[in-house]
Design a protein around this nucleic acid. Sequence first.
DNA 1: ATGGCGGCGTTACGCCGA
Length: 268
Amino acid sequence: MKIATFNINGIKARINALPEWLDEAQPDVVVLQEIKSVDDAFPREIFEDRGYNVETHGQKSFNGVAILSKLPLEDVRRGLPGDDSDEQARWIEATVVGKTAVRICGLYLPNGNPVELDDAGQPVEGGKFAYKLAWMDRLHARAAELLELEEPALMAGDYNIIPQEEDCKRPKGWWGDALYRPESLAAFRRVLNLGYTDAFRMRNQAPEQYSFWDYQAGAWNKNDGIRIDHFLLTPDCADLLLDCQIDAHVRGRDKPSDHVPVWVELDA
DNA sequence: ATGGCGGCGTTACGCCGA
């Protein structure tokens, strides 16, 4: 089973690039982030015509996630539990049954910039960085629950986290940003420490492997990127991992997203 | 090098992202 994650930065803007990549990569399941569309405006026919079932969790203008799957999507849930007042569409999950059932979660973790701290060094309540950390607390709680399921599970998406120095071309330039600073990395490691595996680093130790390049300043041409799109696997799911790759070449095409697809192949 | 690009909503720029 080939499962991909792709932050498309707007479904309307990627109306050609996304089907082109789907047709060549032929993933069985895709989790999408930043569809920037309400559910009713999502062009589901484009994907249904290619044999995908479509489940969206959208909102107007910003955020928005979706799952496309050639296999039926069972027990679909929308929204990350833990805060009923959170109206941002950043989480969707469903079960897909191939040789075995896999619980698949698609996520768009808050960016967190600008980092606002009070005089005591604590995130300012109501600020974007505080929202990021609170969201990661909820992610930790859901991640712990997934470990208790009787099926392999994974959480894939745009984490807006640079896990380590080697996941970034200019670590000194990024240090202190909400994507790469102590509080963010500690929250990410806290999820990993539950027993999750970063699928890409399980299969690939090469340097300069990125999944995002800014549109500005010729970042793609300089390979000035960061690796922030991740697959975290439960131990049962990691046992099924066959491969994990980044389709970086997609970034060089016409009208690209600033992110590229990342995918895993599971023996599932 | 915290904004040089691009998407969105709206229709001239402001907000947002990373």
